[in-house]
Design a protein around this nucleic acid. Structure first.
Length: 490
RNA sequence: CGGGGUGUAGCGUAGCCCGGUUAUCGCGCAUGGUUUGGGACCAUGAGACCGCAGGUUCGAAUCCUGCCACCCCGACCA
């Protein structure tokens, strides 16, 4: 197969596709908009799952599982929710097939469902319908449940990982006795996501809240983390919603409080998806391939033997396996690639494509010198490292790489976050440079919509750390108290 | 849903406009040999109902009709 990757400068979208497919993360499937996540891609996703799952459990959450299929009527119970999701749902109408006249298979018209079932686009409705039976007293609260699941949204246009018709995610759905507690939960989980993005994905994010028109269907407030990709477009990397009592009212979930009075339960939901895989590719990848942060890389180190004969390979293997064992003892994930059907140069290129953070090459020459060649993926730097203390050196190197790629992404974001104080300035930044634009906005949906029509840029969020600052809206000229963050987005 | 494109071996492709031996080439695969410090080379070999269904023709990958699927751009979208 041709493993050449299109360069980012030539065609960014093509580069992204090439990387996803050629680095064996995922591939298109027989079904429109649906992808096959290949073992290497899934291994990264499993790492993400493992880390996030621990973070959820450390913050008091438990996992459960709710059905894939949801009765249609559930969706009409929360008005804005159905508005937001009805257009893009897959619907199950029949429950049986039969042999057709032409020898094929056809849907049995006799097997029509009384009530159609919707393949979940998100699970608020089925979960709140269930919570109704779980909650009677304030003593039953809070409910802190997460589920790992697949969802389906019939998107018109799809892109591998970034927007697929079916995707994998986790969705947390919590129920609380008070508004304050629910808001605290919403903010706490946003913090968990930001922590995960920055310390594991090495992806700097802006924490903020969505404006009314970008809000989740059914939420009172949508918090988000926003990241900047290398082409200057923003990517929403995670969301945490304060749902108020909307779903409790829609599904009649009441409890008796300490004073013996009935009240509706307060809700949150929060999620991140396989879209994070796309973020990982676009934030750190280069023209040679993926650059994986060591904390998430399925293999943090690959050892490539260099030899002329099988006897020589055997000698090198003894040393390589010792190194592997030492690295393993420091919890470093190592792959020793002793395949004889590929040459070293081929392996080097392959592991660069796949983004393995550190490569160790060992030949007879190295064994004589009691050292190995160590190469780091992020900078391409190669160095001779003495065999003594190799494991601790590599461990430090992995930490350093994790920091370096985070800082590189952070610098990029800082360099591409600009203030605009006039409409001309605003437009020229978006057209010529891209990135985040920090600007004043009058707070109305109408203005936000107009700006979107004119520039394709949307308000990504109102940053949580935004300072109060009097100014005037870049479009309408009306007064504004703080800047918000605009960008073109995925 | 509009615009564009593609469909030939596991992958990438030539051939199609202008119908005519056994469908081209590369990668990969198998076997043997030489190799191995940045994507090795030689030899031999296997592998294809040319997206599907009709039609025209002595003859269709090629021309005609219909259908299907996927990709890209746009609109849409937590």
């Amino acid at each position: 197969m041709n493993k050449e990757v299109t360069s980012r400068s030539k065609d960014y979208a093509q580069w992204y596709n090439d990387l996803v497919v050629k680095a064996d993360l995922a591939d298109h499937s027989a079904v429109r908009g649906c992808m096959v996540i290949k073992p290497y891609g899934f291994a990264i996703w499993e790492r993400m799952q493992a880390v996030l799952d621990k973070m959820f459990k450390d913050t008091g959450h438990v996992n459960a599982y709710f059905p894939l299929l949801i009765p249609k009527s559930f969706f009409s119970k929360e008005a804005s929710h159905v508005e937001g999701f009805a257009k893009e749902c897959a619907v199950v109408t029949h429950y049986r097939l039969r042999n057709g006249a032409d020898g094929g298979i056809e849907v049995d018209p006799e097997a029509k469902l009384e009530e159609e079932l919707i393949i979940r686009p998100t699970s608020e409705t089925i979960i709140w319908n269930t919570y109704k039976t779980w909650v009677q007293s304030y003593r039953d609260l809070p409910i802190l449940v997460n589920q790992w699941a697949n969802v389906v949204r019939w998107e018109m246009r799809t892109r591998l990982f970034l927007r697929t018709a079916e995707f994998l995610w986790q969705e947390g759905h919590t129920a609380h006795a008070t508004k304050e507690e629910a808001i605290t939960e919403t903010e706490k989980m946003l913090g968990v996501y930001a922590d995960f993005a920055e310390n594991w994905l090495a992806l700097p994010v802006i924490k903020g809240v969505k404006t009314a028109n970008e809000r989740f269907a059914g939420a009172l407030d949508t918090y988000c983390i926003e990241a900047l990709m290398q082409d200057g477009k923003a990517l929403q990397a995670g969301t945490s919603h304060f749902l108020g009592q909307n779903f409790a009212k829609a599904f009649d979930v009441k409890f008796t409080n300490k004073e013996g009075k009935h009240d509706f339960v307060w809700a949150t939901s929060w999620g991140v998806s396989t879209r994070l895989m796309g973020a990982l590719v676009m934030a750190h990848g280069d023209d040679r391939g993926l650059v994986l942060p060591p904390n998430l890389a399925p293999n943090q180190v690959v050892i490539v033997p260099i030899y002329k004969s099988l006897e020589e390979l055997e000698k090198i293997s003894v040393v390589a396996k010792e190194i592997k064992a030492k690295l393993n003892s420091l919890d470093i994930r190592v792959h020793f690639d002793d395949r004889d059907n590929q040459r070293p140069g081929w392996k080097f290129a392959e592991y660069e494509l796949k983004g393995v953070p550190v490569r160790i090459a060992i030949g007879s020459r190295d064994i004589e010198n009691n050292s190995v060649e160590v190469a780091r993926r992020d900078s391409g730097e190669k160095m001779a490292i003495p065999m003594d203390n190799l494991a601790t050196t590599v461990q430090k190197l992995l930490w350093d790489i994790q920091d370096s790629i985070f800082n590189k992404a952070l610098n990029y974001r800082n360099e591409n976050t600009r203030e605009a104080n006039s409409w001309d300035e605003f437009e020229s930044i978006l057209n010529d440079k891209g990135g985040f634009v920090s600007a004043h906005w009058d707070g109305t949906v109408e203005t936000a919509d107009k700006i979107k029509d004119k520039t394709k840029a949307t308000i990504r969020c109102i940053p949580l750390d935004a300072k109060k600052e009097n100014g005037t809206c870049i479009l309408s000229g009306k007064p504004s108290e703080q800047r918000v963050l605009f960008a073109k987005a995925y």
